[in-house]
Design a protein around this nucleic acid. Structure first.
Length: 830
DNA sequence: CATTTGCGAATTTTT
DNA sequence: TTCGCAAATG
């Protein structure tokens, strides 16, 4: 094996492919490459992306261009040819799901040898590194990770202490600014130096930032951003530590490179320096010092770097992703090879045509056109609902039709811009008995009871973490309120001991006997759990320790009992969730016999979504367009294609906002393999208010001939145009479209040629909206609605343009209608 | 200290 | 509509 090892070392820096013998597959007649089978079915650029060897490679991978396949085969090829050991490979993905998928696919290609690679997210990789090196800079191995909820809670307290609210500094605002700064690798001290200290608000912010950072340090905790930022700091401050990893990782691959922020970029940059090089800014001279000639010494050559990305799919600028990381890759890595993957293997030409047209409206982008050879396929279907429920009904009906046509529910997805839009869809789906699953909604690990349970585990594993203790000290209710908590905190501060140790000395706090007993009991349970999970005797905790300890904590503290005793229906579900968590812990023990509480917590805190693990088999998937990235479905519904939603209203103010929204829409439509539906509603209820919605500008950017409007915005807006789907499901259109070419004509059946409906809407947003502004309705009036038939007005609420009639229809039941634009007329008044 | 009530505010995307 | 917070009450 030593010769193979040497060959791997050599190959890592060699520009040419070294063809080695392979005992497992293929003939060894000297002509066949050992990785030939890995290239099967790949096009030329894809092959190049798999086989190119050199210091830096950028794969520009358009949507659906087989990116994952190329990436996994590249890794497999490195291993198969023995150019690298698994342990020399670091592959970074954006999500845990992507990491798992990649691991599995590499495993399929080359089998067990895939073990030992680091395939993980930025965050998990950094946790692994930090865990090993924590002692280098004032943390311990048992540090905990603060997610955004924890961060918010901590900042809330600090902001309050500083009364920074008075300066307009809310916890949310502080959180956003701190995160941004950390993503730019600016720490509290660095910011303080450059801040304008004559501004009192700025001074407050500096105080909050510094306090926050001190609190993290005291709690032996890292927030999400610190995981990356502190690793970079570690590498820069301790070059010998960095060298360990530079030596180890000879091949670094980064997926979704367009979504990396500056800190992540810097991390990769640190890892791809030549071994033994000092970091600029930390070496005394401040100069970059390279080895005389790294090529002389392959051991010290920088790792080879492969990044994959598509700037058109950059949708995370709002949280610091810097698109320049990919656009300027060639400048950052001179001599980098660039491979373009433009052939799309996913969608039909019609879908791609729409996608290309939309994204083409973004200026300052490298022109790139996806193409396919699978043919035009079906037209995109457009639909405009009268309300969001109407829209949802259309989606449900259409999914049923697809399903009857033989399409599995799991091959259908419904996308929306904001999570709140899922509600209307859910309501209709439940009524239609459509199996569905919401992806990435309220996350399992963000539920209160789960966070409580984890806080108990943290209280045991990281006694320095005061936040966790504060969280659980009165859950379940023990009669320990703010007053008591603060007196414990004060005592701990005075005595220079931790909050946890203060609990053990509750007798000196001078609180009532009942409360003191409660504190003592909690302390005892924590100590017992601690002994179980982290034995002080030095022997190893049994694999079942985590699950057992969790059960012990939840049982003996009375947590579960309190939930059971509650008559709140939700609390039953909470108990089930906790059982689920215990099951997760048992599963963890099976997979990691040596795993400790700390390992368990790290795993759990970095998995954002329990849904990641389950597949949505047999169900329609509902998710935001952000969540949709990287997925694909035979049929895709993009809903709520309205101004102020996509592009979202808030984006209008942000620089580059509208363009990012366009990319988001692009991501949404490029998920579709065969059928794409774009739908919108004319009215949308938001927090109890009904408002008028306008079609999104993005609709106009799609060539009209690509869309078959079942019901265009014109149909709904024009008087008498809105035909009921319930009465005539297949009618392609009704009345005239706002004076357009087809205006005024009526068609009664399916014989309407497609061109007519295009002509009628022609992707022009109708200038005129139906207006019943002058229609006065009062309780008792009888009205007729184009869709719902006849009914009686129960009440009228609201004012002006937002007057709403509450109508009880004979057939359709009670409805709320926006009088100004509803297709209604009065037929009788009492 | 806990619970209830009422009020006001705020609603994007997430590793 | 729903959530969080403050004040009032038990």
């Amino acid at each position: 094996m030593t010769d193979a090892s040497a060959s791997a070392q050599r190959a890592a820096s060699a520009p040419l492919l070294i063809v080695g013998g392979d005992r497992t597959t293929g003939p060894s007649d000297g002509t066949a490459r050992p990785d030939e089978d890995l290239l099967a079915g790949l096009n030329q650029p894809q092959r190049e992306a798999v086989t190119y060897r050199g210091p830096a490679l950028l794969i520009v991978a358009g949507a659906g261009s087989g990116k994952t396949s190329v990436l996994t085969r590249r890794v497999a090829s490195l291993l198969r040819t023995k150019e690298a050991w698994p342990s020399q490979i670091l592959a970074i993905t954006f999500t845990n799901k992507a990491a798992g998928e990649m691991r599995e696919r590499v495993g399929q290609l080359i089998g067990d040898r895939a073990q030992g690679m680091w395939i993980s997210t930025f965050h998990s990789a950094c946790v692994r590194i930090l865990r090993r090196e924590a002692e280098q800079f004032g943390f311990t191995k048992s540090f905990t990770i603060y997610d955004s909820g924890d961060t918010r809670a901590l900042l809330k307290r600090i902001v309050k202490e500083h009364e920074a609210d008075a300066y307009g500094l809310t916890p949310a605002a502080a959180m956003g600014r701190i995160s941004k700064l950390k993503n730019e690798l600016t720490d509290a001290e660095g910011f303080a130096r450059s801040a304008n200290m004559s501004d009192p608000a700025e001074r407050k912010f500096v105080d909050v930032f510094q306090d926050y950072q001190r609190a993290l340090q005291r709690a032996n905790a890292f927030d999400f951003d610190d995981l990356i930022g502190q690793t970079v700091y570690l590498f820069r401050a301790f070059p010998h530590v960095a060298d360990v990893y530079r030596r180890r990782f000879r091949h670094i691959l980064v997926d979704e490179y367009q979504d990396t922020n500056h800190a992540q970029y810097a991390l990769i940059h640190e890892l791809t320096r030549p071994v033994g090089s000092d970091a600029p800014g930390f070496s005394s001279g401040g100069m970059m010092i390279f080895e005389a000639d790294p090529a002389d010494d392959p051991e010290k050559a920088p790792a080879s770097l492969t990044v994959v990305g598509d700037s058109d799919q950059s949708i995370y600028a709002f949280r610091g992703a810097d698109i320049r990381n990919i656009t300027e890759f060639e400048r950052d890595y001179p001599g980098a090879k660039v491979v373009l993957l433009e052939q799309n293997y996913r969608s039909t030409q019609n879908i791609l045509g729409a996608a290309n047209a939309v994204i083409g409206h973004n200026f300052d982008r490298k022109d790139k056109k996806l193409w396919t050879d699978v043919g035009a396929g079906e037209l995109i279907v457009g639909f405009t609902g009268y309300s969001q429920h109407d829209e949802a009904q259309f989606v449900a009906d259409e999914i049923e039709t697809l399903h009857r046509g033989g399409l599995d529910y799991s091959q259908v997805a419904v996308f929306y811009r904001t999570n709140s839009q899922s509600r209307a869809l859910e309501e209709i789906f439940i009524r239609a008995a459509l199996p569905y699953k919401i992806m990435g909604g309220t996350k399992f690990y963000e539920r209160a009871e789960i966070k409580d349970a984890l806080a108990y585990l943290i209280a045991v594993s990281n006694p320095a973490d005061e936040m966790a203790l504060r969280r659980i000290i009165n859950r379940p209710r023990r009669g320990i309120g703010d007053v008591t908590i603060e007196s414990i905190a004060r005592y701990a501060a005075n005595e220079q001991i931790t909050f946890r140790d203060a609990l053990a000395n509750s007798s000196v706090l001078g609180v009532g006997p009942k409360i003191q007993a409660a504190i003592a009991h909690l302390d005892a349970v924590l100590a017992e759990a601690s002994e179980l999970m982290l034995p002080s005797t030095g022997e190893l905790a049994p694999p079942t320790a985590v699950a057992d300890g969790l059960q012990l904590l939840l049982g003996k503290t009375g947590y579960t009992d309190a939930l059971r005793a509650s008559r709140d229906a939700q609390d039953e579900a909470r108990v089930e969730n906790l059982d689920e968590l215990v099951a997760v812990a048992r599963e963890f023990a099976r997979n990691n016999p040596e795993g400790t509480v700390i390992d368990f917590l790290a795993e759990v805190q970095l998995v954002s979504d329990a849904d990641d693990l389950e597949d949505a088999s047999g169900s329609v998937s509902l998710m935001t367009m952000h969540t949709a990235k990287g997925l694909e479905y035979d049929a895709v519904f993009v809903t709520g294609v309205e101004e102020d939603l996509i592009p979202h209203r808030i984006s209008a103010g942000e620089p580059g906002g509208p363009q990012e929204e366009r990319r988001l829409f692009y991501v949404g439509i490029t998920r579709a393999r065969k059928r794409l539906y774009l739908s919108l509603a004319m009215t949308r209820a938001q927090f109890g208010e009904i408002s008028v919605a306008m079609p999104s500008r993005f609709l106009q950017e799609i060539p009209a001939e690509l869309i078959n409007w079942r019901q265009s915005p014109g149909d709904v807006n024009s008087r008498g145009g809105m035909q009921s789907r319930a009465l005539n499901a297949r009618r392609p259109g009704g009345g005239g479209g706002s004076g357009g070419p087809g205006g005024g004509r009526r068609y009664g059946d399916d014989l309407v040629p497609k061109s007519t409906s295009i002509e009628r809407f022609a992707n022009r947003i109708p200038a005129k909206v139906r207006d019943n502004g002058d229609l006065e309705l009062s309780a008792g009036d009888r009205i007729r609605h184009d869709d719902f038939g006849e009914g009686r007005v129960d009440a009228v609420t609201g004012e002006g343009a937002k007057r709403v009639a509450h109508v009880r229809f004979e057939k359709a039941g009670p409805k709320k209608l926006l009088i100004k634009i509803a297709p209604i007329e009065r037929i009788d008044t009492p």
